[in-house]
Write a protein that binds this DNA or RNA. Structure first.
Lengths: 123, 123
DNA sequence: TAAAACCCTCACGCAAGCGTCATGGTCAAG
DNA sequence: CTTGACCATGACGCTTGCGTGAGGGTTTTA
């Protein structure tokens, strides 16, 4: 029923060590079997992919830990009484993402322009 | 006429140490005065901002060094005879940026959805 | 002309995100 | 019942992107 760490690593495309690290950082919270083995869930596959994407995008784990609870879909399980302070933090994260997206988009467009020009020249 | 490292640091919003590091990594190539001081150009302000954005977006300096020459605008100063291999590398960088952008966009949208829901609930 | 304020080059230090043993329990297969 | 494939917990190592002196010239300011 439960997914073991090796299986999750293979399916999600990360190392076993990385998964243990993510647990240390509080990004995933597997339960434990009687023998001490970590028990992951099916949904952790997507969670880990999400984590990978965010880490590759440059977000530190402590921020990922903060925003991960809000990324389960459109407000499915929202924390009770979201206090102002937390909302501000989430909004700040959103703004940071916005800036990163704009920066990356500009650079992607520039690379595309370069590639286009190179192709036209070789034609 | 030339910009000194301290001025550039203030204007571009980075540390002097960071600028020296960028030079070590080949991201900027200031000339030198007779006294050994680094001579930056006005345009380096924007270059450094560009670099900062890419680093914050998670790109390692060696990749930034690779793509930076192609980000000066739409193919203004294109390297002579861009070999296939290099074009492939640039395209790969572009694809990596694309993936990052999609990941960040998904997460930004999720955060927005969360924030919207929170606001509606408090209303 | 002397203190401030910059600049230079080493060079060590540090946090993040794992890689990589070392050492040892667990469990299905032969 | 032993071999091999997994699992666990330390714990040290490495890379990246700088921070932070140490030690010593230069240039502007008082």
């Amino acid at each position: 029923m439960s997914v073991r760490i090796g299986d999750l690593a293979r399916v999600a495309g990360v190392s076993v060590r990385a998964l243990r690290y993510y647990e240390e950082e509080g990004l995933v919270r597997p339960s434990r079997a009687e023998n001490g083995y970590r028990c992951f869930e099916e949904r952790d596959v997507e969670v880990v992919r999400q984590i990978r994407g965010l880490i590759e995008a440059g977000l530190p784990t402590r921020i990922i830990r903060d925003v991960l609870p809000y990324l389960d879909g459109p407000g499915e399980l929202m924390p009770e009484v979201p206090c102002e302070h937390m909302l501000d933090e989430v909004a700040a994260h959103r703004d940071a993402l916005e800036r990163r997206i704009r920066c990356l988009t500009r650079n992607r467009d520039a690379l595309n322009a370069y590639l286009d020009a190179a192709v036209r020249r070789s034609a």
